[in-house]
Computed example of a mutant assay.
Amino acid sequence: MLQVCFDQKYREVDLSGSESELMELRDALLSVSYDPSLPGLIGTEVDFDPSPYPHKLVNITICIDDGPNLIHVNENKLFITGSSSFLKILAQNVAYFEDSSELADGDHIHYDKIWPDSPLDEASLDLIITLNNYRNCS
């Protein structure tokens, strides 16, 4: 299962998983972007130490909304919202991990507001997506 950690101070979420787990996230993003009536709920691992982050999140909910992606946390749950086209952009970023044979464990991408024309809403948290095939849950 995906592991999701959160730090309010730095306004970032770290989402990590194996190649197959990350592709399940990509598929869920695409499914909801094509058909908003589909369930966009993904369970996450809860039995691990989130260090260096102070919080772990218990699930991911993907929803269609107007405008850019908004990554936010409410009651220890991660919400990813955005228009169909913006959810597809996030899915394309997650697809970076599709063939992880050339990647090292710990390789990651930043999905944040640093670059011009960011697909993230100004109020959004930043998102780090990490390939983590060999994690040990505590």
Score class of each variant (00 low, 15 high):
69 N>V: 12
137 C>K: 09
102 E>K: 10
16 S>E: 13
69 N>D: 11
55 H>L: 12
113 K>P: 02
97 F>E: 08
90 L>S: 06
120 L>K: 08
38 L>A: 15
53 Y>H: 06
53 Y>D: 04
80 I>W: 08
108 H>D: 10
131 L>A: 11
116 P>F: 00
64 I>Q: 08
71 I>N: 02
41 L>Q: 14
58 V>P: 05
50 P>W: 14
49 D>M: 05
25 L>E: 05
19 E>R: 15
119 P>S: 14
45 E>T: 09
46 V>Y: 01
12 E>D: 15
107 D>G: 01
63 C>Q: 13
36 P>F: 06
66 D>M: 12
74 N>T: 04
65 D>H: 07
79 F>R: 06
115 W>E: 10
126 D>Y: 07
28 A>I: 02
102 E>P: 03
92 Q>R: 15
35 D>T: 14
85 S>P: 08
69 N>C: 14
41 L>W: 05
36 P>N: 10
76 N>W: 03
36 P>Y: 08
23 M>A: 01
83 S>T: 02
125 L>D: 05
119 P>Y: 12
79 F>H: 09
101 S>W: 03
122 E>F: 10
95 A>S: 15
23 M>H: 03
97 F>H: 06
49 D>Q: 07
32 V>W: 01
127 L>W: 09
136 N>E: 08
46 V>M: 09
91 A>P: 08
127 L>F: 08
30 L>G: 01
69 N>E: 11
30 L>R: 09
66 D>E: 15
94 V>R: 00
83 S>C: 06
44 T>R: 01
118 S>K: 03
130 T>E: 14
28 A>Y: 02
